[in-house]
Simulated scan of single mutants.
Amino acid sequence: MPLIVLARLALSLISLLVLAAAGYLLWSWHHGYWLTDGLGRALHLREAWRLWTAVALLSWSFLGRLVVTPLLARADTEPTRAERSAGRTLQSPTGSLLYVEEHGPAEAPPVVLTHGWGLDGTIWFYLRRALSRRYRVIVWDLPGLGKSRAESGGAVDLSHFAIDLKAVLALAGDKPAVLVGHSIGGMIIQTLIRDHPKVVRDQVAGIVLVNTTYTNPLRTMIFSPLAQALRWPLLEPVLRLAIWLQPLAWLSAWQSYLSGSAHLANRIGFASQVTRSQLEHTTLLATRNPPGALARGNLAMFRWAADGVLQATTAPALILAGDADIVTKCEASRTLSRAAPGGQLEVITDANHMGFLERAPAYSAEILAFCDLHLRSPTPLNAMTRPVVDA
């Protein structure tokens, strides 16, 4: 999301400056300087402090995360991991190749999980484990991220993602599914409701929007007036440079990851409960995903809005928010809950944008209860009636 993009940019520059300083000190130490002694002999002298300072800065540049992560996060009791199971590739009508995994009983009611931007399907480690005991959990990677491949740069936008989600939802067959989306995942669900209302009416038993927004996220983040003012002179040019200079941007991202500055940037998406594995997992995914794809997705979010879309659906909605979310402020979730007919808002305490990780038991309990209510209810889906006019 844009706030973390700004933080990573600033801290990456600092990390590169530290590396440059180390390089200069090594060069100046090796070059040394010449003096003439009392006998007229030329002496080549080197200052040891330059060498040792350079070694310290280089160590920080490539090993800093080993020190930074324990300082920023608490020890784990249940570590999260970027683990995969057997998956398959699905051809989307957009032309993108979507990586999909399925977990849990094959005949159970389906739940589709859509992750946030910069991540991939492995980020659902806790929720997937909680749901798959009784549900068929379908997890996918957004195009351009993880193991999914976008058909082109133009396929990295919310309208295309909604078509991709429609293709993933088709795997549920004739069983209505609950759609769960975090951050941009929630935005994609809203786009699906806007662009494909018949699909939602016929195939969706409920929606869960997790720490998300209804409009350009620059408008619903902390310091939003400043963020919007910086969009054209700073954010847009930097993101376009990341597309054009992707190899250099990727090298910078990995150096930032190794130094720990990327961990520091991603730490702002958590509140006080974050553990080391959660911070490491999030930072690793944000680093190994292509900078060009990340930039295109952020640019697409700047041009997106779905104000009032939830008014057009009868699907029951659970809106989950973190009271400490600075990436998409809690007020955005309140607006969503007011727009959704019968929408249920739950605000999780001491949870930031990545609250579904740091407060996993609380988020998982809410989502599991919602699925139990709407996927195991004897009331037929079509009984939840209010006519929806297809677009």
Rank of each mutant, 00 (worst) to 15 (best):
A265C: 03
C330Y: 06
W29M: 01
V388T: 14
L258P: 05
L381F: 03
L113Q: 03
V389R: 03
A265K: 02
P110Y: 12
N298Q: 15
P2L: 12
L230C: 04
T94M: 14
S92E: 01
V327P: 01
L318R: 05
T77F: 09
R88C: 00
Q255E: 00
P380L: 07
A48H: 01
H196M: 11
L25P: 01
A170R: 14
A315C: 12
Y135E: 03
L373F: 06
P341W: 13
N289H: 09
R81M: 02
A10N: 03
N382S: 15
E346D: 12
L192H: 08
A10M: 04
S183H: 12
I319Y: 02
L145W: 04
G355C: 10
L284R: 13
A265G: 08
T282W: 00
E102Y: 08
L373T: 15
Q246G: 07
L57H: 05
Q255I: 07
V199H: 08
G206K: 14
L230Q: 02
L142F: 08
G343Q: 11
A312P: 03
P93N: 02
F223D: 08
G153E: 11
T94N: 09
V5S: 14
S364Q: 06
R240P: 09
H196E: 14
R334Y: 01
A362M: 09
A369H: 07
V199F: 05
L320P: 13
E331W: 10
C330I: 12
G87W: 04
V100S: 04
S28M: 01
E280Q: 10
G343W: 06
E101G: 07
L218E: 10
T122W: 00
N298R: 06
A56H: 11
R136K: 13
L285S: 04
M221K: 02
P143I: 06
T77Q: 12
E107G: 02
T77Y: 10
A73R: 06
N216H: 07
D76C: 05
G32N: 00
A305C: 08
S377Y: 01
I14A: 15
T282K: 03
A56R: 11
A82G: 09
D350L: 13
Y33R: 11
R376F: 05
A262T: 03
G23N: 04
R359T: 05
L310V: 05
S61Q: 03
T385F: 14
D202R: 14
R149I: 09
P387Q: 08
L57P: 09
